[in-house]
């Protein structure tokens, strides 16, 4: 038997001071918006913080091509590191802005931008989809 009182999805107020902090909200929203944009930029323009060479366990700063006889190069770790650092920095900068500005940042972007980044990633992988 069902009544009309909703019970799920509406929790009690959080006791965490972090969750109650307006500055933390600004940080997570700015981080959540800038991170997928930065990730797309890092992949499209190939901007890893470092390159990892798994066959030799060698790490090089920035982008470095695979060397002959040393196996493949991996950039994904470097892209992820670049994005986390840049997005966290932008998030911290956003916390210094007045709330009258940060309140206007649309929350919809925290899920819409990651969603929009996916077709861009699919596009970057076009050689795999079209390989004969």
């Amino acid at each position: 038997m069902i009544t009309t009182t909703a019970t799920t999805g509406r929790a009690r107020p959080s006791t965490s001071s972090l969750a109650a902090s307006a500055k933390f909200k600004t940080f997570v929203v700015a981080f959540g918006i800038s991170a997928p944009v930065m990730y797309a930029i890092c992949v499209l323009w190939n901007l890893p913080l470092f390159t990892f060479h798994p066959a030799t366990n060698r790490i090089a700063w920035g982008w470095e091509a695979a060397r002959s006889g040393e196996g493949p190069a991996m950039y994904w770790y470097g892209w992820t590191a670049t994005v986390i650092i840049v997005a966290a920095t932008l998030g911290l900068i956003a916390t210094t802005l007045p709330q009258s500005i940060t309140r206007k940042i649309p929350l919809v972007l925290v899920w819409l931008l990651p969603l929009l980044a996916i077709p861009i990633m699919i596009y970057t992988l076009m050689p795999f989809w079209t390989h004969p």
């Binding site: 997570v28 981080f31 997928p36 994904w76 992820t80 925290v110 980044a117």
Partner: peptide
């Protein structure tokens, strides 16, 4: 697989906002 690595990272990057929104579900 390459798309999987991208999606895993994009998901990871949403976690701070996800956590905040759920901790303020009221």
């Amino acid at each position: 697989f390459d798309l999987k690595e991208h999606v895993a990272t994009l998901g990871l990057l949403t976690l701070p906002a996800y956590w905040y929104l759920w901790k303020n579900a009221q």
